[in-house]
Write a protein that binds this DNA or RNA. Sequence first.
DNA 1: GCATATTAGTTGCAATCGTAACTATCGATT
DNA 2: AATCGATAGTTACGATTGCAACTAATATGC
Lengths: 155, 155
Amino acid sequence: MAADGFELNAFLPYRLNRAAEFVALRFAAQYKARYQLTRPEWRTLAALGSTRRPMTATEVGAHSAMHKTKVSRAVAALEERRWLTRNENEGDRRLEHLQLTKAGLRAYVELTALAVNYQAELDALVGASGMQALTAGLEAIERAIGKVEKPRREG
Amino acid sequence: MAADGFELNAFLPYRLNRAAEFVALRFAAQYKARYQLTRPEWRTLAALGSTRRPMTATEVGAHSAMHKTKVSRAVAALEERRWLTRNENEGDRRLEHLQLTKAGLRAYVELTALAVNYQAELDALVGASGMQALTAGLEAIERAIGKVEKPRREG
DNA sequence: GCATATTAGTTGCAATCGTAACTATCGATT
DNA sequence: AATCGATAGTTACGATTGCAACTAATATGC
């Protein structure tokens, strides 16, 4: 009577989490050592740098799947560091347009260089066919997330 | 001069984390509501239940990719709940063999039923081909983890 | 066989996190 | 224009986390 038909090692949340944890930790060690950045700070920087135009905090949260309080604190930290500025939106003053400063953009560029290296390392480690399969699978999940996430629920 | 050759949306840690977060949260809501289990507690229970034989705390940590302090606290909580017992190892008394009690095993069986349903839900959402690709990709990562993790480094 | 290093597991503490409550602003209804 | 609801973002607070330091036991080197 013991859990027949269930194989933990094939259970998606378990496997995904394990892989994500492993992959993220090794990269976090790099930006943490280099810049004393926390994970939410790096992700906020990355989101802002990748779009090349101002975003609101809400947009950053949607882009990076982070809770709004995480975004709020990360933005405050990056502002303190003078890596981003907030510009009030005319017309709707609830919104703030977040934009990287020159220093912020410089840091972003340097970090993306690390990211490119790390991605190459992962490619080599996982192999082309594995990476291709993974990409296809993740795309399927992302489509599924889009389907389900309509009723605004964010982690 | 701006991060050419880098596409955040294709960066594996970012994507994996987003998918893992999403998938895990929806399942966590279930065991949290049903049993007031935390995520480390569920994972410890799952690791112990899935192998059908005693494991040490270190083995639980390796199996589930959890930090040893997380495992330690989860074990203490499950013990308090009388869902597992610790048995001292003869010969090396640093080790404790952790084993589910009948109540623990019962909970495990009930939770795996939820897990099977959830996996089916995910299968439907993601589609057979997507899930197959994902599985293949995750296997590639797990092999890679095995390769790299020799110098004992754990999150 | 004694000193030293290593491993299993726990715990104090500071930092981080998420929930819920809050402020401020906007839009819609009347 | 006054009210009600929704949205952007912040913050207080309790809970969770990870690091580092700790205890206890074993393994290793000399």
